[in-house]
Write a protein that binds this DNA or RNA. Structure first.
Lengths: 112, 112
DNA sequence: GTTTGATACCTCGTATAACATAGTATACAC
DNA sequence: GTGTATACTATGTTATACGAGGTATCAAAC
């Protein structure tokens, strides 16, 4: 889906962590996974995914490892770390609150 | 509530339009209204509200009018326009999709 | 055997949004 | 005449999603 330019800001890190909490992925695969598991709603480009992965790794929330499998294009598989899981939990709480706030305001507007 | 810096991006315009769809407000009052009607979740500062109001007005989604009431500090009351309502409807749809996508990904992570 | 397409990663520039901060001005109570 | 709540204005900072470009590998098709 095509969102207004700014709507995804602040949420991408969260759903990326969540996706990796579900299963380890390499970058290219993440794009697919996110699209598939979100029913086509999240379609990130590579220019979004890779810088994001580097940042999350730099913060210690995920850890990448080069896949040793030969006979393939080399690829880096990322796993969520314990710190990443804590971060995810915190982000998820904030997300729930945001949804609650939005629901209150949007519902209020509906019957006004 | 205190959100991570980027989480609100793209949502503020939406809930501001929604609040004005509920009732006309002037800027200072909007800060209060949003806080009250969102159960304390949205606490915008004036440095956020006013520039936002100017932008939305420039785009024709809201219309401000100086309150003629004497014996008061002059204040500018904003109303949502028909174009603003259409914009709000479109934003609300995008928001629903975002929530749906996030739910799918976050739920997926939970039982993985 | 070389072209094509899918896979996989990387890098830079740009736009823009939320917020903090600081400032101005009015009304009213005491 | 001081203090407090109301009300609006203006500027600078920081972070981010994304587009657009690039490199490299492998399998299948022709």
């Amino acid at each position: 889906m095509r969102f207004d330019r700014e709507l995804l800001k602040g949420t991408t890190e969260t759903f990326l962590l969540a996706a990796l909490a579900g299963m380890p992925c390499h970058g290219y695969q993440l794009v697919e996974q996110l699209k598939r598991r979100s029913d086509g709603i999240f379609e990130l480009g590579e220019g979004t995914i890779y810088p994001l992965l580097y940042k999350l790794e730099a913060r210690g929330w995920i850890k990448g490892q080069w896949d040793a499998d030969t006979g393939r294009r080399r690829r880096r598989v990322y796993r969520i770390t314990p710190r990443g899981r804590r971060q995810l939990a915190q982000r998820a709480r904030q997300w729930e609150e945001l949804v609650r706030g939005m629901t209150l305001i949007l519902k209020g507007a509906a019957h006004a």
